[in-house]
Design a protein around this nucleic acid. Structure first.
Lengths: 359, 359
DNA sequence: GTCAAAACTTGTAACGTTTCTATTTGGAAT
DNA sequence: ATTCCAAATAGAAACGTTACAAGTTTTGAC
């Protein structure tokens, strides 16, 4: 009696509401079976449990008819897995990260994972906050570029054994999976190239904060290139730009730098944004590239090959980085407890038209 | 008795496991109160229900001590709100989308929403699949650029009244919130500028598929510019590039186009990728910009201002677009049932050095 | 001293799954 | 006929929250 009424009510509400929520229970009720059964069938576990073929068909038919889709949130809660990865980068609008993101997204998607993307904006506190947020949202793993100075904060907020992959930047004292390139070596080779071309007064343009591993290593590469050739190196030619100013397109420091050091004939910039900033400044100052200034930069962005002159650069294997990062993350998620591995990929020094021998 | 055993077990497991999961119940058990109480306190509803200040303090203290963070998945299930937005773009690695994404991400984040980001890759089936995925994941709203030809598919899979915002591209026959720019007008003005400079043989470089609203409108703008001035327009100068080929950097079509139509003195490109492709081709052909070819393009990307020559372009208000999109989405989520509004923002025609009067 | 209202707290259900442990039925083996 | 097993299904618990409807106890007014 009571059941009957219940049944009628459901029918009624079905007729009235435009879009009734369709759940396991609705299918089960419709067919007068248990939701356990429905779940089993729809998860392909029916045969193993020898569920009547006929019943299976009915369930599947009804599910299709109602266009049933399992609620992934409920599923996530029950199974303790959300099939979501957190991707935390310094700045998603930076082409370097945007392109890696794309690979990561596609790799993740083919494995059934979605991506929650966030940018730390090079702020340690934001990064902390965002990592916490991702953990609260129960992501199954995090792939990130850290902006941290010290490992303590991450150690504190990320549980040991939580699937984590750092890429691009590593964090000394923080043992985790990592994928990136040999920034020092790549820079050294690029600077050696400039030295080989006869340049001695080579500027090095980098960013604050200097403790970020990639920036630090690039600077080391610059220094060791000179060392390797036994040439003296001056602090004067090292310019460290403020990240915020760069973001705000305040390039005064660079102009100043050029004016104060007119003897500089070549310049290495530590990333794509700096190269672009430099292009603008140089243009304003009326310097010609490469005649007056040879330029070589870390990171390749699309337009570097089409500018006049085309910019020589160190290209990172972006796709590969994304690929490895996702693989590492999924590996940890699936096999649990894998000791952390580091993968160092090859960079490519691309010679274009922005460098030439000193006159 | 039974309770006591339970208690001991919990204590025991606490002692043994490195990181015990900390939930409302654990706090409640520790303090011998109900989880309802804990929930109430931690959600700031304690005062309204006149819960003892002392109790509140204990709860909060213990929560901090254990570093309790509510499980957002459970919360999402219970409350029917995940505080997650889906962001579906054509290609996250395209700077245009990447920059909008950044704004969207920040806006969303300050409102407590996270972003699941995905790229449709200009594929209708992928788009369909991704939208479904987002819905299965119970996102509270979707912000997207559609790649669809017809509205049917979206109508079928997205429930009416579901918080949805289209941006950049609209879909005729699909009534939804929308934010974008007047592509036709912007293009018309740009082409008029070229006409004003004396150019008559003006190429128009665009992408397939042509039914995408932005591309279609831009083409219309090109045509109506000529119409407005009563100049004849040739189909010959309209080149529609295949998206996949462009993505694969296959620029043969463009080269061919220039060779077949040497009389062209100016070119309008429909987006940033096309402009870049064009720069490369032009360079290979030994044409000079702007002397041999005036170029003006839709979309501004950072490097356009620093290339030599700097590229004239139509800039869209990226930040504003993202801002409006998020606002529209949240509005729908919060107020439910708002009739769909369209916001058309102003573009800016930026004159740089890539255009000049015909000789 | 009674009674209502305030202060304080709790148990239970629910969100939509999956998983674990039953239960029922019919038939084959003893 | 009993026992046992496989086939077929269902009930209940659990994931971690919040919401609802009830409890208690205390206070203040008459």
């Amino acid at each position: 009696m009571k059941n009957n009424l219940h049944f009628l009510l459901k029918r009624f509400s079905f007729a009235v509401m435009k879009t009734r929520k369709v759940t396991l229970s609705s299918i089960a009720d419709d067919l007068n079976v248990s939701k356990t059964l429905v779940s089993l069938v729809l998860n392909g576990k029916a045969d193993a449990l020898s569920i009547n073929k006929e019943t299976q068909k009915r369930v599947i038919a009804r599910a299709n008819e109602l266009n049933y889709k399992p609620n992934q949130v409920a599923r996530g809660l029950r199974m303790g897995q959300t099939h979501t990865l957190g991707l935390l980068v310094a700045d998603i609008s930076n082409p370097f990260y945007a392109r890696i993101t794309r690979t990561i997204e596609h790799m993740a998607e083919t494995e059934g994972y979605s991506l929650i993307v966030c940018s730390s904006d090079e702020s340690e506190s934001r990064e902390k906050h965002l990592v916490k947020m991702l953990l609260d949202r129960q992501v199954d793993g995090i792939i990130m570029t850290t902006t941290m100075h010290q490992p303590e904060v991450l150690k504190e907020i990320i549980p040991t054994q939580f699937p984590l992959v750092l890429f691009d930047r590593y964090l000394t004292g923080f043992d985790s999976h990592y994928v990136g390139v040999d920034n020092e070596q790549a820079t050294r080779n690029a600077v050696k190239h400039l030295l080989d071309l006869g340049h001695r007064n080579i500027g090095f343009l980098t960013l604050t904060p200097n403790y970020i591993s990639t920036l630090y290593d690039r600077q080391q590469g610059y220094l060791t290139a000179f060392e390797a050739y036994n040439f003296p190196v001056t602090d004067k030619y090292l310019l460290q730009l403020d990240y915020v100013r760069l973001k705000n397109k305040d390039y005064n420091q660079i102009t100043q730098f050029f004016l104060e050091n007119p003897e500089i004939t070549a310049l290495f910039t530590s990333n794509n944004n700096l190269a672009i900033a430099c292009l603008k400044t140089v243009k304003e100052l009326g310097k010609r590239i490469p005649e007056d200034l040879s330029l070589i930069t870390f990171d390749d962005v699309e337009c570097f090959s089409y500018t006049a002159p085309a910019i020589s650069c160190i290209a990172q294997p972006l796709e590969k980085i994304g690929e490895v990062a996702v693989k590492m993350a999924l590996q940890q998620i699936k096999n649990k407890r894998i000791d952390s591995q580091k993968v160092i990929l090859q960079t490519e020094l691309i010679y274009r038209d922005s460098t030439c021998a000193i006159n």
